[in-house]
Design a protein around this nucleic acid. Sequence first.
DNA 1: TATGAATGAGGTTTCATTCAT
DNA 2: TATGAATGAAACCTCATTCAT
Lengths: 229, 229, 229, 229
Amino acid sequence: MTKEPTKAATPTAARADAKGRAPADAAPASNRATRAAERRSAIVEAAMEEFIARGFAATRLDDIARRAGVAKGTIYLHFKDKESMFEELVRTVIVPVVAKLNALPPPTGSVRDLVEAFAGNFLREVIGTRRGDLVRLIVAEGPRFPSVADFYYREVVSRGIAGMRALIELGIARGEIREKNLARYPQILVAPAMIAVIWQSLFARHAPLDAQDMLRVHLDLIFGERRTT
Amino acid sequence: MTKEPTKAATPTAARADAKGRAPADAAPASNRATRAAERRSAIVEAAMEEFIARGFAATRLDDIARRAGVAKGTIYLHFKDKESMFEELVRTVIVPVVAKLNALPPPTGSVRDLVEAFAGNFLREVIGTRRGDLVRLIVAEGPRFPSVADFYYREVVSRGIAGMRALIELGIARGEIREKNLARYPQILVAPAMIAVIWQSLFARHAPLDAQDMLRVHLDLIFGERRTT
Amino acid sequence: MTKEPTKAATPTAARADAKGRAPADAAPASNRATRAAERRSAIVEAAMEEFIARGFAATRLDDIARRAGVAKGTIYLHFKDKESMFEELVRTVIVPVVAKLNALPPPTGSVRDLVEAFAGNFLREVIGTRRGDLVRLIVAEGPRFPSVADFYYREVVSRGIAGMRALIELGIARGEIREKNLARYPQILVAPAMIAVIWQSLFARHAPLDAQDMLRVHLDLIFGERRTT
Amino acid sequence: MTKEPTKAATPTAARADAKGRAPADAAPASNRATRAAERRSAIVEAAMEEFIARGFAATRLDDIARRAGVAKGTIYLHFKDKESMFEELVRTVIVPVVAKLNALPPPTGSVRDLVEAFAGNFLREVIGTRRGDLVRLIVAEGPRFPSVADFYYREVVSRGIAGMRALIELGIARGEIREKNLARYPQILVAPAMIAVIWQSLFARHAPLDAQDMLRVHLDLIFGERRTT
DNA sequence: TATGAATGAGGTTTCATTCAT
DNA sequence: TATGAATGAAACCTCATTCAT
């Protein structure tokens, strides 16, 4: 009475190669594997939208399928069940974020400029975008999906904290930051940005928040006098 | 508004009277209205626990009823439906918070002492307690329950922001705070506290966070040199 | 993400007694417990028909519900799921059979008369009736429901075999049966009856089988010359 | 009857020829028709295993395909649908049984020896083997597949009964069998063998049954005194 | 008021069948 | 011929809501 399907691996990836030769006549953009990958992305994309809009429990696979333009059953060719889909989804969406964090340029110029550039970029790319909603989604569903919270902590939060700490220590060493204890709580550095993300989702229509400006004020607190821009 | 007008003689009540004796356990302080209120608060309490643990959609009225020690139908004597219950629930739980905010003492002593006392109190009462989870619940369900987000903004956030702004302006006027622009973003003042609340729910088991200590560092940033305590 | 309902116990059986007194005014035939029991039997009855007609896997709960005159959800108030329903069902239906086996009269008269009366009765009550189909159902689904096969073996088969063996030994002792080895294989005694049951389900429309007459011939083999009736 | 008429040039074939060379692996004894027949019998074999293990409704074509080492779609090149496959399958598997029955040697020696040899052979080849499970499968699915039951009756049962009857009449004529009425119910002769088959599937792990020995006792009943072997 | 059995719409998941390659 | 991704009808099961008691 039990089975174990465990699908979700890339389905037909290397069949052509089994012939022992490169598929010379394979049109690069329309073979089976490519179309399957496209469908998978469509599902991931659609699922993101729905999960963000309604949360895990209230999201219907029917709606995901319709939005992705596939049949309900197709989802099960790519994901074992709704829970696995949610978990893999978050991983899939987080991966580029991690890549971006790892690709940060080495610190040149003042630490404040670095932080401001980085945080400004973060705000532009996250606030009010789907990626910001992803943060809210993780906050919302984390307790019910410990594996998701774990993954997010391991891949994003702990690395981000470590990176911030390194920057803060550099700023302290260069005399840009006076408050030495800040290195113990890099969370303080990013707290306003997180607040801005959440504020955007919940209260923007009551009181819009200029996240970039708030960030500058926050950095003034940390780095001292605002520079004359 | 969700309750039916109280009817005079319901079947059960009539049958009890038919026994020809006064109900022995009806103490003067435990009349019908009182017991109804007790039931209602039992339901509210149970619903809070369940909604926090599972979120709105995944919470079953069955579980709420069992936890509250009432029958499922009883919930519908107090609330119109699940959504109304959730909305009223959040209001009910938030009211004492508002009351507390309104009962704050007038500012005497230094602003830093005031803020530190208030925030310290906030952290003690919120971090790791059910009230902290309530914040996360609102973050999680806010987009699907605009009325809840609106209510929370109106009753708690906007008042809190206003109060913080007044304190900040006082601090600036007294020379305790140098960064004048902070008054435009009181969110910065509370951001680390919010982060601590969320951190506690999601990442505490990976990396515990000393919220009180982090708060002191944050206040040092705002008020300058840490005083020698 | 896991729960354990485990319903299926008699739902509201003893609630009235919780009051500490016998429910004097409880109409014997129409209280809640009685109606629940009636519904349960209706479901059991309907499920028997459907399982016999289609087998376990091909039977739809929808059809059972419709036949029983209840809603689909009602089934789940009495049974945990389809498998549990099937298993409990077989138990429920088998119980009276066991009771009947236990209530057999002590052997008086000739062993042949006893066996003939018993087997004749068996054939009348089983062949072509729902109880006969139950035997076929157990044969069909037994390998996939070991607990059902086990239960049937323990409660019916092993007792029946033991009873037959005792009768055979009595017959040998009395000189009615010459073949002493028969006591080692009481299955031989009942084999034609079982064949008749299966024949009835599968081949009756091609070649009707007079089970009672076949039984007499079989008993003649065992007990020797047919008596002049 | 379930196969499409063979078309001349299918896409795959055409593409292979486009390479301008003869397919190197096309041995003379392994042409297309042969390989198709091999695939078909692989499907039949796999389907037997699955249908026996799970019954018709619970068997998945996916599992049959995987076990047979073909793609799911291939099954539909050989069989119209699942039901047709089941029906043809049973026919296919039964055919050799019929052939064997027809090839029985003419009766020489004593009837008891004949019956004992035949039945002993039957038990060895059927009990605990796949062919025995086929009997159980027919018992299980017969009512839902009248055509299968019909076919089985026509090809196996009726011939077997007729053959048994002839043997019995010969035994009566030769004086080996005293019970003349046995010729009217040849089922009695085979009943213990059928019981043994079913017993093996359902109850063997509770109480193993020595079918060969039981058969000898049964034949003693029919042919009188056990011969001194 | 309070109960909880009953309902049935609606959700997730499976799987026989099709069809472009 | 052969493939297996895709489909979508249909199954099982849940649970918010109702209502007779």
